[in-house]
Each structure stands twice: as C-alpha cells, then as structure tokens.
Design a protein around this nucleic acid. Structure first.
Length: 497
RNA sequence: GCAUCUUUAGCUCAGCUGGUAGAGCAACUGACUCUUAAUCAGUGGGUCCGGGGUUCGAGUCCCCGAAGAUGUACCA
C-alpha cells in the first residue's frame, strides 16, 4: 500500500523523534512485570508503592495539555497510564507528545487510582520502543455494566482475513479462538501421548500420493528433476511405520487437496491420523469418542455446542449405527438385498449423479449421502460402509460387500473416518488395481497403485485400527464457528486487487 | 462451477425517482493538569472496486471483469 497522508505525517514525527537524539527503534527494552501481574491484587501494588516498568503497545491516547492518559496492552492485559509533564519533565513529556496509538512504549512508574477511580500507572519515564507509522483502524471501547461495547469495530470480513494481524489486535474474541485452537491441539497431543502413541512426521512431498480420494497439488524438485505431489493424507506412510515395528503412531499435520473452497473446505487443512496395532474399529470408536469428549469437556469446558444452526450434545454415549440400517430408516430400501439395477434406478429417479464405473457399493454411498448424512445431528458413528468405496479397509467377515469402517457424523458433517485397516497384501493389491481402473475411466480422485506400499505390506503388517480427524472442523465445532476461515489464521484467499 | 447480494475517506457507514460526495470516529492545528467512546473550536482528507456504455450530466441506470459473503454442486 502506498503512503497515504497518515503515513507521511507519522514519518515526519519519526524524523522529529530522531532530531531529539532518540532512537525510535532501540535495541534495548526493559520490563519488570507483565501487565497481567499488575492487575492482580491491585491494592497491594498501590500500598507497597512498587516501581514497575511495563512494556506494550499504546492502544489509546487521551492527551490534554500538560498531562495525558493512554492505555498500554501486552499479551496479558491492558492498563491505563497517567502521564504528566510534572512527573516526566519537559523533555520526556515532549517525547510523549510525539507518541501515537499503535506505538510500542516502555513506561516506568508506580500504581495508583486516578480521581475517576481507575487503577493506573503514574509514569515517571516513557521510552519509545517502536514507532508506528501507519495508524491502526480506530476502534473505541466503552465498558457499560461490565460489558465491553465496541464502536467502529474492525469487522470487514475480507480485511479481517487478509490482514489477520489487525483482526487479532483489534478483536480479542478472534484472538481467543486461536488460543483455544492451540490448547485443543496440544491437549490432543497429550491425550495420544498418554496412551502410548508416538508422534511422527512423514513426507509432505511425495513421489506418489494416496490414502484418500482427492486431487493433489503437483510441484517440481529441480535437482532430482522429478514432479512431486503434496500429500493428500498421511495414511500410507504411517502404515509403513507400523510395518517397521512401531505399534502406536500419530501425526498432526497439513494435507493438501486441489479442490474448491467453501465454508468447510480450505485447500490446505490439518488432520490428525493415528494407527494402533492390535486394535480395530471398535477401538477406534472408543479412541475418537474419548478424545473429542476430553477436548470438549476438559479443554473447552462444556458438552453442548451450537454449530451450523444445530445444537449438538457431545456428552452421553454416542450412537453407533449401520449405514444400511440408516438408509432403510430413511428410504425403506433394503440396500443389501436390492439388486444393483434397482438401486441405479432409484438413484436416477432421485436425480443423483452416478459416476461411471459405479458399482452397488458406490450407489449405496450415494443414497446414504443424499438421504441420511445431513440428518445426523447428534454424534453418530456410521458403520458398515461399502467395501467398494473403502479400498484401504478390511472387509467385514460376515458380509464381503461391506467394510469395517466408520465415519463420525456430527451436525450433518464428517468429523472422523476410521477403519480396521486392510493388511492382506494380495487383497490390497486387488483393491488398488480396481481403483486404477476407475482412474482409467476418468475418476481423477481414485487412488493410485503404490508399489512400495504394497511391498511393505508383503513383509507383514499386524491387524490394526486407524483413524483420521479433521482438526479444523473439530475446532470449528468446539469454538462454535461455522466457517473454516474463522479457525485458520491465514485462510486461502484469491490474490487481492 | 452456478445463483444471489456486497464493494463510497484510514475504520464503521449514509447517499432518494440520475444533477457534480456526506456523517461519526481517526488525523492535523489550537485550548485544556485526573481523562477514559475525553471535551471544545477550526482544518485537511475520495481512482465512489476496475473497464466500457447510455445520457447534457452516472456513486446512482446497462454490459463486462475483480474480490468478498451466502446458498448450491463436488470433496474432509
């Protein structure tokens, strides 16, 4: 952005400060206490008349002649400073007169109550720590009955995302979302660590991509002169680690999918995947339910959330249901005994788009997604997915059409996906080759055949359960935000004009 | 992708059936030794998202484009 009138004026002030022999960006700063410390036990600070040095951003200025007030803020709180020429002397007060809201300053003094009764720092010295040369948007606050009213709030949603630093600075409730996100993610790590999982990091740049149905981003490595893919999932690498003898691994990291963006999709997003040897689908349900309940109750501190217009209760025992049963409830169709032709006719009748190469399993999934998924508001483990659309999951022993897989649905949306992982190397090869056929028929989201992964399976992989949770969506739910952009610090945006 | 809506000063916004751009805050100057959305007086500040068109005249009407939001389709 070019210099506007404001920036020009502030640069002139900067020159005036330098002309006084003062470095507006000094190397050294001092602070004896954080503002939050000073806000605890106020009377005691006043009684002891302690001299403290605070540092922070000047967020408001009210100057009147030879005295003035300001508010300085650090990451622990905000306090008013009282600055008078009588206390500072003419030279230092001259510097104060060149201060603006937005500057970082260091203020030394002791605590007292002003005549209006506000707990404040009576300054004996002010030091410039960093001069602001571009004014912050002017947001004013007034506290009425303990509630903070904000005027001229920095609310333009596009500016909030593009200039997130301003959003964080000017809208404390948005900063809190990201603080909470951080606490949720670190608590998830502790939860997994406490259960004997180890956290690992696997490649983001991959020669082949797999583990999900999605289109990838492609990049190029100059020295090797090969194209590489940004991962769409970490599944196949974590499974290699289980082959390698780790029994419980997880990874929290970014996946990249080259698809559209909307309220619940960002091209890069965070997933937690975990794999546990000698566990299975039931173990994964216990793990996912336990983890999410822990994050809700112990980190956020409640079990009822309003999300996407629905009220969702995470306490209590979560429903475990079978996809064919859910579909039967909704449509009266007995999926398993119906012929493929009948299901195809049903899909056509309801104008569901049937991709080429769809078998009975895909049709079942289409019908489920159209008639059932969005009706599941309270947390529901939807089990018994068609094997056809679950190429990495074990088939159910009692029904080869179905896979030992669930998706966790809350408020009509998917929050987790888990399988009893397929460890039969020959079956796995057949499944991936079937995917390759779909790909040849034009399904550019079908899996590719990863020979190195198949070879790893041939060396032997124990039975295990694996799951993946979409962290962004979980944070959306737990912070009650309906847009993924509200829980991503820097959401993907089109290039600005 | 498609549909609808939005885009005016640094920020939040007004701007009627087309007549030459406004407010509050912020800024600047001045006054002010206990303010707190400080107050009072004065001053400056605009590519009305961009590009075309209609018109004597366009912030306003029409067309094209951009960005954003919402809905919808696909996907986590």
């Amino acid at each position: 952005m070019a210099d506007n009138q404001f920036v020009k004026l502030r640069k002139e002030k900067l020159a005036k400060i330098r002309a006084l022999g003062i470095d507006p960006y000094p190397v050294q700063s001092e602070r004896s206490h954080k503002i939050g410390d000073i806000l605890e036990d106020k009377d005691s600070w006043i009684r002891q008349n302690t001299v403290v040095t605070l540092a922070g951003r000047l967020v408001a200025m009210r100057r009147q002649g030879k005295l003035g007030f300001g508010n300085i803020e650090d990451d622990s709180g905000k306090i008013q400073i009282y600055v008078s020429q009588a206390e500072l002397g003419e030279d230092n007060y001259g510097l104060f007169k060149l201060c603006d809201a937005g500057d970082f300053v260091q203020a030394t003094g002791s605590l007292f109550h002003t005549q209006a009764g506000e707990y404040s720092l009576k300054c004996t010295a002010i030091k410039m720590l960093s001069k602001n040369i571009r004014p912050l948007p002017a947001v004013k606050e007034k506290v009425v009955d303990g509630k903070t009213l904000r005027y001229d709030e920095f609310a333009d949603i596009e500016l909030r995302y593009r200039k997130r630093y301003l959003d964080l600075l000017l809208n404390p409730e948005h900063r809190k979302v990201f603080e909470l996100r951080s606490r949720i993610v670190s608590a998830a790590r502790r939860y997994m660590d406490a259960r004997g999982y180890i956290e690992v990091e696997t490649p983001i740049l991959q020669p082949l991509y797999g583990g999900a149905n999605a289109r990838p981003f492609i990049t190029h490595h100059n020295t090797l002169n090969v194209d590489l893919y940004l991962r769409i999932a970490v599944e196949l690498y974590l499974k290699r680690l289980i082959v390698g003898g780790f029994e419980r691994v997880y990874e929290i990291g970014k996946n990249f999918r080259n698809e559209g963006m909307d309220r619940t999709h960002n091209p890069e997003f965070t997933m937690m995947e975990s794999y546990e040897a000698y566990s299975d689908l039931n173990g994964m349900m216990d793990l996912v339910e336990g983890l999410i309940k822990h994050l809700a109750l112990d980190v956020v501190g409640k079990d009822t959330f309003v999300y996407q217009g629905h009220t969702v209760h995470l306490g209590g025992s979560w429903r475990r249901a079978s996809m064919p049963e859910l579909v039967a409830e909704a449509t009266g169709l007995d999926l398993l005994s119906e012929t493929e032709e009948k299901l195809l006719a049903f899909c056509k009748q309801h104008e569901l788009e049937v991709p080429p190469g769809s078998g009975k399993g895909k049709l079942i999934a289409l019908i489920y997604e159209h008639f059932v998924e969005e009706t599941l508001i309270e947390p529901t483990f939807v089990c018994d997915f068609p094997k056809e659309i679950s190429p990495l999951a074990k088939a159910k022993p009692d029904n080869p059409l179905l896979a030992d897989r669930f998706e966790l649905i809350i408020a009509g949306g998917e929050f987790a996906n888990a399988f009893s992982e397929l460890n039969d190397p020959l079956d796995q090869r057949e499944r991936l080759e079937a995917q390759a056929k779909l790909r040849a028929m034009g399904d550019d989201e079908a899996n590719v055949v990863d020979e190195d992964f198949l070879e790893a399976l041939e060396y032997g992989m124990p039975p295990m359960g694996g799951q993946g949770i979409g962290i962004d969506r979980l944070v959306m739910l737990l912070t009650e935000n309906d847009s993924i952009k509200e829980v991503l610090l820097f959401p993907q945006m089109k290039p600005g004009s």
